[in-house]
Nucleic acid binder design. Structure first.
Lengths: 192, 192, 192, 192
DNA sequence: CATGAATGAGTCTTCATTCAT
DNA sequence: CATGAATGAAGACTCATTCAT
């Protein structure tokens, strides 16, 4: 649906392979519960030199952004689909669940979603697109009287990250996640 | 209502002075946005030796707990007052706002509120007392049909920390804090 | 046989009690395999202040010397008995075994036996007495043609500490200790 | 006779230079009587960063082992030569003197010789080789009725370390060292 | 005399980042 | 472009010793 975004000039084959290896290892590290993302460690595990990692990703945040770019793209797609949904409230529900599930699953994604400043322009673009889609979605929902008037797209993002934070702390019972999400949705409903 | 908690065997005057200085500096550091709480730095700023800091607080978490002990005690008092309120929902509202405001103001307090494991038994005791009071409050509210049946005291704590997280990210417009709090409260209301 | 040597002016009752407690704890620590003899730790375990320990023993070595004073006195007695033995070789044998067994059992004793410089005059006196007795013993043994002529009292002390070192390293099979001791004794015999 | 042992994958020129500098400084420290081998100090004296020392030697023991690896290899060679000697007793004599002289000269070597557990596999291999050669030597000497039957290769190593200990304590008269060595050798002779 | 809080130099260790190879 | 050795600031923590109480 959306074309894969390019990183400037096309990479040489070996450089691309190294980049992919680094991303792969970083994902594994995160999945293993280590979100320190130490570039030295990642380099070693990826079988490349530290310098190579630094060439591709000047700092940890850049790596995080790259890690989450694909998921972010999916999120934008999902948000657009939601914005196009007849039933705005149902769309919002779907979108929030989608985001929450992925955020709980991927620390890197969460970090970028929460972060205010981005290194990669690509990320900024994606965020703007997301914001745009969600704003449309909220507009429609508000016009239908389905949600309160005092929250904007940014508030929804922040609140969802808060719910994610709550769900991540303590045990990770899936049922509880649903409850927390439901608390947010009901809280967003129009009063009265 | 609750007696000022004791710090074990009464401290010698000079020891108490140093302890207070350390806590004071730590609070200033947190207020200045540095929540790394480096014991070395704190010692230097407090004008005491590192060893002194380590004597009083064997590690960072112990310092955090001490920092928040007073506030925590206030919180417990507030929770008990809320539990005694005729209008359970109003009590809950007051309690959540109280907690949120203090958590936003004091990173140390937030850290201890969120943390699952405590070093000081005093903290554990306070947490248990808090939990007890909140549980009673929720029981009454539930019996009155005011809030949903699928959230417990622990869920409320986690959700509130989530809302705090949301409120802390991005700008810190007081009005927005009220909105976020209201979202939580409405989300906790009994359905229907 | 030999009167208990005094530590200068008689101690007040409570001071003596504290001193005894400290020595007791120190012995327990050594027996437990911790030969770091940390004065802070000992003070805590003995239920006295660090300052008290320092008052009685200005440094670790002084403590070691005090710890071994009693045993050292026994050793001097044993050496004198050995020097008085008809059979000089048998006396030497008994003396070496006695020393070895106690050295293996008591790190503090070993430390003082090996050490060249002493803090307490009492220790120096004891060492001189020991040296005197051993020198007499060796003289008699040499005159009887029982041991080689090229070793003096000090050599015997050093060699025995060496054997102790060997016996302490690795496993601590009692039989092996006997073998090592026998190697030393045969090595000291007059060449044949 | 034995090929120079390899240090894993060949080091880069500059890395090798740094490694050598560190070893050199460490040897000087030991020679100066400081056997604390503080990695910080060594780094400073060698003119390299602490991290460099840690890269080459993860801990003190690894440094000790590296320090003594060369000498240890020489020792193994010597032990094999001794085992091949017609006159087993003469071979043993040569081997013990060789070891003693080197141990007295090199604290690091002594430490590894005495230590029961090794970090580097290289050291373990060398120790096994040494043990093998000495065992053969002892077997032949025993069969020739030259030494007592109740000591094994390990006992000889421990006893020699003991003699080294004795020789190191007090003055370091070379003649005395010979006497001590002779005491050991006579002590090892077959009785009778 | 006894206390033990305070001291702070000293030591170990990690890790983000650079740059010679 | 890739490498990975080197860096060294930074932080955590210990402990022998002093001295105010």
């Amino acid at each position: 649906m959306t074309p894969k975004s390019e990183q400037g000039p096309a990479l040489r084959a070996d450089a691309a392979r190294n980049r992919a290896r680094v991303l792969q290892v970083a994902r594994e590290q995160l999945a293993a519960g280590d979100d320190s993302l130490q570039l030295n460690t990642i380099a070693r595990l990826a079988g490349v030199g530290v310098g190579t990692v630094y060439r591709h990703f000047p700092n940890r945040h850049a790596l995080w952004e790259a890690l989450s770019a694909e998921r972010f793209q999916e999120l934008v797609d999902e948000a657009r689909a939601a914005a196009a949904d007849e039933d705005a409230l149902a769309g919002l529900h779907r979108l929030l669940r989608f985001t929450l599930v992925h955020a709980l699953d991927d620390t890197g994604f969460t970090a970028v979603l929460e972060s205010a400043s981005d290194n990669e322009t690509q990320t900024s673009v994606l965020k703007a697109e997301l914001d745009q889609a969600v704003a449309e979605l909220l507009d429609r929902a508000r016009r239908a009287g389905a949600i309160r008037r005092d929250v904007e797209a940014d508030d929804v993002r922040r609140l969802l990250c808060g719910i994610e934070h709550a769900a991540r702390s303590g045990d990770s019972d899936p049922h509880r996640v649903e409850v927390y999400l439901d608390v947010l949705l009901r809280g967003l409903r129009a009063a009265g």
